[in-house]
Design a binder for these strands. Sequence first.
RNA 1: CGGGGCGUGGCGCAGCCUGGUAGCGCACCUGCUUUGGGAGCAGGGAGUCGAAGGUUCAAAUCCUUUCGCCCCGACCA
Length: 422
Amino acid sequence: MKASLDPVQTLHEEPAEAEVVSHRLMLRAGLVRKLAGGVYSYLPMAVRALRKVEAIIRQEMEAAGAQEVLLPALQPSDLWEKTDRWKAYGPELFRVSDRHERSFALGPTHEEVITDLVSQIIRSYRQLPFLAYQIQTKFRDERRPRFGMLRGREFIMKDAYSFSASEADAHRIYARMQETYARIFRRLGLEHRMVEADSGLIGGNLSHEFMIMADSGEDTVISCEKCVWASNIEKAPDAEICPVCGSPVTSRTAIEVGHVFYLAHKYSAPMGANFLDAAGKEIPFFMGCYGIGVSRILAAAIEQSHDGQGIVWPVSIAPYRNAVLPLGPGMAERPEVLALLDSIESLWPGETYFDDREVRPGMKFQDADLRGFPFQVILGERHVEKGNGEVKIRRSGERIVLPLKDIPALLSARVQAILPES
RNA sequence: CGGGGCGUGGCGCAGCCUGGUAGCGCACCUGCUUUGGGAGCAGGGAGUCGAAGGUUCAAAUCCUUUCGCCCCGACCA
């Protein structure tokens, strides 16, 4: 991508409307713009980061045996009445009427829709288990949308639903989803923690949350200093020692980005979503559901990973892996610069933001830092004259001067060292 | 939903108290100079002052109503 073709500018001044750091940086870096309270447009850079998050989620969900579906956001109210959530969900549920005054919900979640759908398709235990997922925009009429992308009224979510013929199988899938989620967050390059959780309005009796550690998090995680036990403080309000091993516990704030629930018959029973088991008996599906806040991950990643200069993207979700910054007039057209650009392109197709603008070096540095590209290839007169270039590592600030021809190999080696297995 | 704050060019703000027809910085456009950490000079374009009603010779400014946005709290992916 050439910067000269990118109309989105960074903001030098702090937007007054933003308080939390992820919101400020997302606005300043030109990732999003607000349309209404809790409703944002995603600009091209943000979409690139979102697609990377989604790609990792899709790979891991498919690897776990899930199949992608796409369910309606517009959902007739009678479905919700079957599970009593038309009332129970309260004012958080966006409700709309069509021209015939038939009422609908804008889906905040899809248990009703998927249960209805699967009950039409699956009649026998022989068709089970079935694991479906989707990535889609969700709606919640938040009492108070806030913190920018961390709590919007419209957001992108990956939700998955499992249908099993037995509780044992449902628990196996639940465990598999826990592992899958751990892999996803590891690959995203984010420090995270799985914790015991309350199951809230979704229901069920077994539930874990996946938290991204961040100083600004709204949630508090209590975790054991010795063993792996951890819990949401809401679930363990008074824990001063670990209930598993008795060691002291510590608390840290975090942002919830994933939640898995075992639902059992909570939705299948009231909706009459049954199948025939091996004995020929009609019983409800054993269900589980598994959510990840995709758009929230972007904000949470920034909350966890930024500094005074701007965003510090993990390599796995950076909109572009690296920026090439030719400094000074004519540098962007020099043959050795273009040759280097080509060789980086062949290493990482489409992953370079080429700052060919005719602006002063300081602006290129500031913008590259603010936007958080993991690598900056800096090409200034005094180095290029000698056949050299400089690579700056955004996260550490490390700078390496080396021959231009060696730059792709250095980038490749650095990424190999950082990226979790894929 | 309770408490607080704010709506004035794209962004950040001043002007409002004490009415007289809108200004500054950034960004943008043109020209010249400049080029390793958000350049300088000169010229220029851009605002129904959130909306509606009222008071007045005159309203960004005073009064009423209303909409929106932000923050804190209670509740939540």
